[in-house]
Write a protein that binds this DNA or RNA. Structure first.
Length: 595
RNA sequence: GGUCGCAUAGCUCAGCUGGAUAGAGCAUCUGCCUUCUAAGCAGACGGUCGGAGGUUCGAAUCCUCCUGCGAUCACCA
């Protein structure tokens, strides 16, 4: 039982005893730093049950608690706030009880229910860019957070490997490629293919311009440009299974996959299961037929099938074309159902997709609910804002993107530059340095992106590099490294960290603050999971680290004369570093032994 | 036009189910490396929480309206 639960019972008891009244619940908040105390009971809400002066009521409750609850060492009342001072022994007991836990704060895997988290889901016609980085980091992190909160998680992505955009790259390569391959050019496969996507757009625009010059209306020219018609023709051939087209498609997609693999590895993300749109794009049609019988959908005269969502404040949405072919929505319905077939324990899904698709997912979830799937109640669209540049939106086909690989490389180089200037790692080999610089660079980038609320759009200015000081990933990594340094030194000087600490020691104010911050880690993980928010973890970790640094600068650890206190401080530091490491692992950020 | 989202210090962001004098970082300015890593610490400066009403003992937080920005409303995906 934690202190709040104990106090809740005792406060209710006090109200019963002192005022013969029934208190429905007790409201707590951490005591503000400028007041004396650790936890505060808010008296105002009690006025509904107990009539009187809040200060007097608070004082009476305080006296009762001080007498009846050993953990309450003292109290004071300010206006309607009853500030309680919790005894040091309580914190020390808490610390001793969690000290040996491998992953303090992680919930036990209790639920048999699994969640499938989808993220990344790239198109195979171009390399990944900064927008994909946000998507990947969010999806990966939310998956890790859900795991830590006790859920079983499957990470997945649906690879958009077919469609007109793919054919555009293919066609441009056929026309302008001269048989180039990743091997012959030394280019990463996704980069090579992406170049042809850009080349297609260039050629297409030139053709449109030419048609317009010759008197064709712009709208007509945009539809009839020969290269576009050729791409559409290629898509039809692909759908018909044309051997030559399919072979080219396979070859070029493989180039892209090989390239993506490198990017994912550098980003530090992974997947448990892959879905390919080329396998799933025909799914969902039979479900529509079922739904039609059930009356969930209706058919229009031209044969197209729709759902009427006007009762929900939305409009009508098509689920099957008049020619009987599937649309985007049909596929997504089919794919969702397929996933539950593949993984029977899946009882919920998270879709990490940009906020321009808010409407689509709203509709998709509604349809699945109307079709009566129990798991449809647990669908969540992890919607995030766009990453824009000062020059505006990123557009792959116009080449105005911040490339994922380039950005990660830049981050590592910035980290290298700063590290070299500080010059603390002269004895590291170049391999060790390189590994460390990547870790720090990625730490900066990941933290920078994950610390902000997913809903907010990010304006990314490549000119102003991502920070390495203050509320940043490297700041937190640095603190971790610093603690490791202390631990190494402690070990070499023979401090016995396994010894239990006596409850009799007096806690320094900084130690107490640190313990309070450690204590809320489990709740923080649950909160982050409930809100699907890595930002909650990021901000928690920052607060913890700030607290530790303050402790570190104000209190001597290894220089402490009292052996008990010294051991306790080393143990506390060790535990804090473990929490930092675990919290950062939920963000997909690694921590270094030195930096 | 309808719907959804966002708006907090010069800049970038926190602020949990309504609670005390709204918090960090960056930038600017002061101090602190002969003691455990100064990517740090301690401090100063900086706010009509977009605007107006309302609910409440109490509103950045909840409700209504308005303004600004973004997204979306395809037999594209």
């Amino acid at each position: 039982m934690n202190i709040q639960e104990v106090l809740t019972i005792k406060v209710k008891e006090a109200i019963q005893e002192l005022f013969s009244a029934e208190l429905p619940n007790v409201e707590f908040q951490p005591t503000r730093k400028d007041f004396n105390g650790d936890i505060t009971v808010v008296v105002f809400p009690m006025l509904r049950v107990v009539k009187g002066n809040p200060v007097q009521i608070g004082t009476q409750i305080g006296e009762y608690l001080k007498k009846e609850v050993p953990e309450v060492a003292d109290f004071n009342v300010v206006k309607g706030f009853l500030n309680l001072v919790i005894a040091d022994a309580f914190y020390i007991n808490f610390f001793n009880s969690i000290k040996e836990e491998a992953h303090f704060g992680y919930a036990k895997k209790d639920s048999k229910e699994a969640v499938m988290v989808e993220y990344s889901s790239p198109n195979t016609n171009k390399p990944l860019h900064l927008g994909h980085i946000r998507n990947n980091l969010l999806g990966y992190s939310v998956a890790e957070i859900l795991k830590a909160a006790g859920k079983k998680v499957y990470k997945t992505q649906i690879i958009n490997d077919r469609g007109i955009h793919i054919c555009k790259s293919m066609l441009a390569w056929q026309r302008f490629g001269n048989g180039e391959t990743p091997e012959s050019t030394g280019l990463k496969g996704d980069k090579l293919v992406g170049n042809y996507y850009v080349a297609f757009d260039k050629a297409y625009k030139a053709e449109v311009a030419e048609l317009v010059t010759n008197g064709t209306a712009k709208e007509v020219a945009e539809k009839e440009a020969p290269i576009l018609v050729a791409a559409q023709d290629m898509l039809r051939k692909w759908e018909a299974g044309d051997a030559e087209v399919v072979s080219l498609w396979k070859t070029m997609n493989q180039w892209v996959y090989t390239g993506f693999e490198v990017t994912y590895k550098n980003m530090g993300v992974d997947f448990d299961q892959l879905y390919y749109e080329s396998n799933t794009y025909l799914l969902g049609k039979d479900v529509v037929t079922d739904g039609l019988e059930k009356g969930v959908f209706f058919k229009k005269e031209d044969g197209s099938v729709w759902i009427d969502l006007t009762d929900e404040g939305l409009d009508e949405k098509i689920v099957l074309r008049s020619d009987g072919t599937a649309v985007y929505m049909t596929q997504d319905i089919g794919t969702a159902i397929q996933r539950v077939k593949d993984y029977a324990d899946v009882s919920g899904m998270v879709y990490t997709v940009g906020n321009e698709q808010d409407y689509h997912f709203k509709v998709l979830f509604l349809i699945l609910k109307k079709l009566g799937f129990s798991w449809a109640e647990n669908l969540f669209h992890l919607s995030y804002g766009m990453v824009d540049l000062p020059s505006g939106k990123m557009k792959s086909r116009e080449g105005t993107v911040v490339d994922a690989d380039d950005l990660m490389e830049d981050m590592a180089q910035t980290a290298a530059k700063i590290s070299e200037e500080l010059g603390k790692l002269e004895d590291y080999s170049s391999e060790e340095k390189d590994k460390l610089y990547r870790m720090i660079g990625m730490g900066a980038l990941k933290y920078y992106i994950l610390k902000v609320d997913p809903k907010k759009r990010i304006l990314f200015n490549p000119e102003e590099s991502v920070d390495f000081q203050g509320n940043t990933g490297p700041f937190i990594q640095y603190t971790y490294a610093r603690i490791q340094s202390i631990l190494r030194k402690a070990e070499s000087t023979g401090v016995h960290v396994s010894t239990a600490v006596s409850v009799d020691i007096d806690l320094h104010e900084k130690e107490k603050e640190l313990l309070k911050q450690v204590q809320i880690f489990p709740d923080t993980i649950q909160l982050a999971a409930e809100n699907y928010s890595p930002a909650v973890i990021a901000n928690y970790t920052y607060d913890l680290v700030k607290e530790f640094n303050s402790f570190y600068q104000n209190v001597s650890i290894l220089g402490e004369q009292d052996e008990q206190k010294k051991i306790f401080r080393v143990q506390l530091s060790s535990k804090v570093s473990k929490v930092i490491q675990d919290a950062f692992s939920l963000l997909g950020v690694e921590v270094p032994e030195r930096m």
